[in-house]
């Protein structure tokens, strides 16, 4: 069964006929060609598919696209502005918070959701917030350093 839905992704409105079985992650990657959100565990545990939907961080592999008709989605492709990396992306690069990079888009989006709500988290708050993102390179120390450097850099 196909359903007509509208999604606003990174500011652009899209009308799409989607198979009801498709997840939001499927639609972002296969229909819209946005490969930033990654399929890791496909069960909501690893956070590699994290995007921001209507202002909240979500695992896009655990959402039927048809359920999210009308939603505003922000993916990692939408965070850099005018060719400039977002401060979170720059901090991850500068602090070495990237190794293989597979988990990075999910981290960028969940860190953005954290700092949008709480611009100055404690390290413990940042670690708790990021519990839903796994880095198989286990580079957590550098990722947390990056979060804290962005938090310190804003006032």
């Amino acid at each position: 069964m196909k359903t007509l839905i509208t999604l606003t992704v990174n500011g652009d409105a899209h009308e799409l006929y989607v198979d009801a079985r498709r997840t939001l992650l499927d639609v972002l990657r296969n229909e819209l060609g946005l490969m930033g959100a990654h399929r890791g565990c496909d069960s909501g545990d690893c956070g590699a598919c994290t995007v921001i939907a209507d202002g909240q961080p979500v695992t896009s592999c655990m959402m039927l696209a048809a359920d999210w008709n009308g939603a505003e989605i922000l993916t990692v492709e939408g965070v850099a502005q005018d060719g400039q990396l977002h401060p979170i992306q720059r901090a991850l690069v500068e602090k070495g918070g990237i190794q293989c990079g597979f988990c990075t888009p999910g981290f960028v989006m969940n860190i953005k959701a954290l700092l949008d709500e709480n611009p100055h988290p404690t390290e413990a708050e940042a670690r708790a917030w990021l519990a839903g993102n796994l880095c198989r390179c286990t580079g957590y120390a550098k990722i947390v350093e990056a979060v804290m450097s962005v938090a310190e850099g804003t006032s």
């Binding site: 909501g44 956070g47 994290t50 939907a53 909240q56 961080p57 979500v58 695992t59 655990m62 959402m63 969940n110 959701a113 954290l114 917030w129 519990a131 839903g132 993102n133």
Partner: peptide, 9 residues
């Protein structure tokens, strides 16, 4: 429970 992402859903 779960994670920030799952708690949103």
């Amino acid at each position: 429970m779960a994670s920030e992402q799952i708690r949103s859903l």
